[in-house]
Design a protein around this nucleic acid. Structure first.
Length: 117
DNA sequence: CCCCTGACGACGC
DNA sequence: AGCGTCGCCAGGG
């Protein structure tokens, strides 16, 4: 059987799951859309995580700034209130950003599949 | 129902 | 190191 979220779970649960994982990201650490997708269900495309985050910013308080793409780039910055809001939020937590990219991404990276056993 | 558009990611050049 | 392409799944026109 397919393992997509739409066939087995309701869309709402998908959002909740994404938010739950994001809420568990330690302060000062970051993760990627793909890592979350992989943790929730390997078959799920990482695009869906970004899609969930897009819906998130209108709803509750979600630490969306701690989620970047697989290369550590702040691709979601344009969806924040200001173009620099995401970077500033990260730097307040001790995550340095240069050229829209997380510095020492490998060190800051938090993998839910590995650390959230 | 077809086509386009993504807060993505892996590859190829 | 930068682009372009393609696969991915859901939503909107």
């Amino acid at each position: 059987m397919k393992e997509t979220y739409t066939s087995h779970f309701k869309r709402n649960n998908f959002f909740e799951d994404v938010y739950a994982v994001v809420a568990l990201i330690p302060k000062g650490r970051v993760t990627s859309y793909g890592a979350i997708a992989n943790y929730l269900g390997s078959k799920l495309s990482a695009r869906m995580v970004g899609w969930a985050m897009n819906a998130a910013h209108t709803q509750k308080h979600i630490a969306a700034h701690r989620v970047v793409n697989s290369k550590g780039l702040l691709t979601g910055k344009h969806h924040f209130k200001t173009p620099t809001a995401m970077q500033q939020a990260l730097e307040r937590e001790g995550v340095k950003v240069a050229k829209d990219k997380v510095v020492d991404f490998e060190k800051k990276f938090w993998n839910p599949s590995q650390e959230l056993l």
